[in-house]
């Protein structure tokens, strides 16, 4: 069964587009990344999943239940971390978590709150107003996961967290995912998705560009060649590198170009030309996304 199924989801704020015709599914137990630049529609989509926004069109099914009217019971199976985490500044971390735990019908001592707080090095005795942005984010993570939800919906969960805590956070998420929790998270840090997710959806200007398995994207990736030839100078024209990649360039004595498909003929051509140094790299997910992004932009223009 799908944990999340979204079909033809649109949201307009008056005439302004939030998202349009967004469709994807997330299987139970999957780790799904939702990527896009700021203002792409990630939070709008997530806030519709959480019943905070009413969709203009489309259907959402969560954990097998179709979202029509408000369904608080369904929300008890979901943990949600908003992109901007705010709590009553007068409360301390412990009080926030106690209130949230009671909302789920639990006593705080029966939740994972203490364990997660310790792992994230969060002092729960301090008032929220004294927390830094990072500590507020940590409190949000604890609150979102403390009741062991079936589905965790995390909107930009790592912003404000230092690298060590980010590492621990992903470790924690992996453990919870192994125990059956479905993870849906949005980010604009593509390396997080590359390391952590099974599948990824790209969204831009309210429209879903594509949904792919992360390992499938890797297979279709371009190879980035950085070559220093024995012969000095710009050899792009002479070796017809611009036929391999119209954007091939010569910088600081190196020829840089990208090639898709089999690389054997390219290596043979380079060997014939005489090579002093050669690096072949897979572009990062970030570069792939930026290429997708610019292709769509050019297509529209």
């Amino acid at each position: 069964m799908d944990a999340i199924s979204v079909s033809g989801l649109s949201k307009f704020y008056g005439k302004k587009l939030g998202v349009e015709q967004v469709s994807f599914t997330v299987s139970k137990g999957e780790k799904f990344g939702f990527i896009g630049p700021n203002g792409a529609g990630k939070s709008t989509t997530i806030r519709m999943l959480m019943q905070l926004l009413h969709p203009s069109a489309g259907e959402i099914t969560l954990l097998g239940k179709s979202l029509g009217q408000e369904d608080p019971e369904l929300r008890s199976k979901i943990g949600y971390l908003p992109s901007e985490v705010e709590y009553d500044g007068d409360m301390n971390g412990h009080q926030v978590l106690k209130f949230a735990a009671h909302a789920y019908g639990l006593d705080l001592k029966d939740t994972m709150a203490q364990e997660i707080a310790e792992r994230l090095q969060l002092d729960l005795s301090r008032k929220v107003r004294d927390y830094s942005l990072g500590n507020r984010k940590k409190l949000g993570i604890v609150q979102c996961l403390q009741h062991r939800p079936e589905l965790a919906v995390l909107d930009e969960p790592t912003s404000g967290l230092d690298p060590l805590i980010q590492h621990e956070f992903f470790h924690l998420l992996s453990e919870l995912n192994s125990a059956g929790m479905t993870i849906f998270f949005s980010t604009h840090v593509l390396s997080e998705v590359e390391k952590f997710c099974d599948r990824v959806a790209f969204i831009r200007e309210g429209r879903l560009l594509r949904v792919s398995r992360v390992d499938e994207i890797a297979e279709r990736m371009l190879r980035k060649f950085t070559v220093t030839f024995r012969e000095s100078g710009d050899l792009i024209e002479r070796l017809t590198l611009n036929k391999l990649d119209p954007e091939a360039r010569y910088e600081h004595g190196e020829h840089i170009f990208q090639v898709s498909g089999p690389i054997e003929p390219v290596l043979r051509m380079l060997a014939d030309a005489g090579v002093n140094d050669l690096r072949v790299e897979r572009p990062s997910l970030e570069e792939i996304f930026m290429k997708d992004y610019s292709e769509h932009t050019e297509g529209e223009e």
Binding site: R47, L52, E70, S76, P82, E86, D88, A100
Partner: peptide, 17 residues
């Protein structure tokens, strides 16, 4: 005003409650 609405309204309470 306090931007705490996402927290409150994502808890398993109906808006009416």
């Amino acid at each position: 005003g306090n931007k705490t609405q996402d927290f409150l309204f994502s808890l398993p309470y109906s808006r009416t409650q």
